[in-house]
Write a protein that binds this DNA or RNA. Sequence first.
DNA 1: AAAAGTTTGTACCGATAGGTACAAGATGGG
DNA 2: CCCATCTTGTACCTATCGGTACAAACTTTT
Lengths: 193, 193
Amino acid sequence: MSSKRALTDRESALPALAEAFREHGFEGATLAALSKATGLGKGSLYNFFPGGKEEMMEAVLENVDGWFVNTIFLPLEHVVDPAAAITAMFDDVTAYFRSGRRVCIVGSLGLNSAGEAFSVRVKEYFVRWISALAHCLEVGGAPPALALDLSEEAVSGIQGAIVLARALGDDTSFQRIVRRLQSTLLDAISRSG
Amino acid sequence: MSSKRALTDRESALPALAEAFREHGFEGATLAALSKATGLGKGSLYNFFPGGKEEMMEAVLENVDGWFVNTIFLPLEHVVDPAAAITAMFDDVTAYFRSGRRVCIVGSLGLNSAGEAFSVRVKEYFVRWISALAHCLEVGGAPPALALDLSEEAVSGIQGAIVLARALGDDTSFQRIVRRLQSTLLDAISRSG
DNA sequence: AAAAGTTTGTACCGATAGGTACAAGATGGG
DNA sequence: CCCATCTTGTACCTATCGGTACAAACTTTT
């Protein structure tokens, strides 16, 4: 009953939608831009996303969140080797954000009033990231209070590095900042573990 | 010939314009919103800013830049007491960004394509902030390479703290992060000076 | 290959976007 | 007090916005 397969389906349009939202922001991403980015006509977009732009963004956020849960959060939450997990996290994040050339769609949504409709999801994304990382540091032997502080600093620092790298048009600043954040975290666990 | 004084002039409309641009972003700030924020009709706005939204944003950026130059950059560049200057910088910045509730209009412009028209100004803002802070750290005795790295980290960290505080709807995270950045910088100069 | 269902382009909708025109009102110099 | 200048609200313009309607084209099932 449900196994209809089309040339394109909803899921496979999400990466292109995400890229368009990242590049133009929620308000700035016009239906024309979304149509061009996905290669789908308006009719198709509204067929897959009857709720319009808002449903598209919701789906994109769910998709992005899924990626982070699987690639970043779960490994931190079920960590066995904290140092390796932290290194992997920074590697994955650096690749994902293309060394800061690629905007964090979740972070940028929180900045202006257009993103208020998604504020719960935005908040939960950061809360989970920070607490997953803090858990990992605790497993590595860091005291809970320090672990939480350092996690907050690292997640926040990554967002800042994206802002700065975009502003300067320079990947290397992202890489320097992220490398230092990584060292700080590794220091905290090697000092206690 | 020039000393005509009106009920309102261009300059005094800038804070309200800035606030509207911060809240809605460049694309999201409609003329209706800008008109409401300033209390000026469309006619007045286009009288003061014939170039439309773009000229308004340009004027806002110049205004913001002026504030940062006077309050933040110049004191760092002509520093005599590095520790005091750094403390003052963090105090002023925390007040200016309202502990992260207020978005950095320069940083947010760099994030989406709407801000490309202002990319030179955005870049120069961050370059000057970082180099002014690095100079201050060097005066405090920090080695040049370290001074530059730490400055980059601090400026980037402030931007990240804004993103995180907005996303979490929580000022305290901003304050914790900024306090730690401040300690890091003060450590670097007390260790060498 | 006909039927049933999906996907898609096109045309269209009202609303609103940014911007212009301009006459009426306010202001200050002489 | 009057005139030149500046300021302002209103009306209006075109383009485009997000969204809808729907018939044509395409898949898939049978």
